[in-house]
């Protein structure tokens, strides 16, 4: 189900916790599983977590599948819905909004021709609003595919970034 490489990464997570607390690694394991699907998935459906992969992770860590599902749905960054090749999450919380967060989201929405929450028809982009990313001083900020934080996203910076995300 998951590549040997992903399993090795999951094992590294497991090693952080006491031997009888493998469950602690579920957040890392789901993240690793999601990363693998994101990097190998050809369609929006193939890039998000699904029943099989959550069950696989649960079995791997010897926890009930529904417990892994609870975790996958509780934390926002796990994609449970089909997602574009580039998921762009813009922080629009108050501090960011005061420094252009909302404008940035609107600007991207206009450029990509998709509303917030949507995925472009070619499956390339998903645009989401995010909650505080702990980077309000760098506003406007956005995350590409969960892990790549982009700061000071003025319209020019956004243009440049979108040009890279092809």
């Amino acid at each position: 189900m998951l590549s040997a490489q992903s399993l090795a990464l999951i094992d590294r997570e497991v090693a952080k916790y006491p031997a009888d607390q493998k469950r602690s690694a579920v957040m890392g394991a789901l993240r690793i599983a999601l990363e693998e699907r994101r990097s190998t998935g050809e369609t929006p459906e193939a890039r998000c977590l699904n029943q099989e992969v959550i069950e696989f992770v649960a079995n791997y860590l010897e926890i009930p599948p529904v417990a892994a599902y609870e975790v996958a749905t509780f934390y926002n960054m796990y994609d449970m819905k089909p997602v574009g090749k580039y998921k762009i999450t813009v922080c629009t919380n108050l501090p960011c909004a005061l420094s252009g967060g909302v404008n940035a989201a609107e600007y991207i929405s206009g450029k990509l021709g998709i509303a917030i929450g949507e995925t472009s028809t070619d499956g390339m982009y998903t645009l989401l609003e995010g909650e505080c990313m702990g980077a309000c001083g760098d506003a406007p900020v956005l995350l590409v595919n969960n892990h790549s934080m982009c700061s000071f996203m003025t319209p020019e910076a956004i243009d440049k970034k979108l040009a890279e995300l092809k």
């Binding site: 952080k16 916790y17 607390q21 493998k22 469950r23 602690s24 690694a25 579920v26 957040m27 890392g28 789901l30 993240r31 860590l61 926890i63 417990a67 609870e70 975790v71 509780f74 934390y75 926002n76 960054m77 796990y78 995010g130 909650e131 505080c132």
Partner: peptide, 27 residues
């Protein structure tokens, strides 16, 4: 000393939610 990452839940800043999350549960 080890690092554990959250994945998008403000509530995990509350210390006991954080512990639950660290244990691999919902925060």
């Amino acid at each position: 000393l080890y690092a554990h990452h959250g994945y998008g839940a403000y509530i995990c800043g509350e210390e006991t939610a954080l512990l639950e999350s660290l244990e691999g549960k919902k925060g």
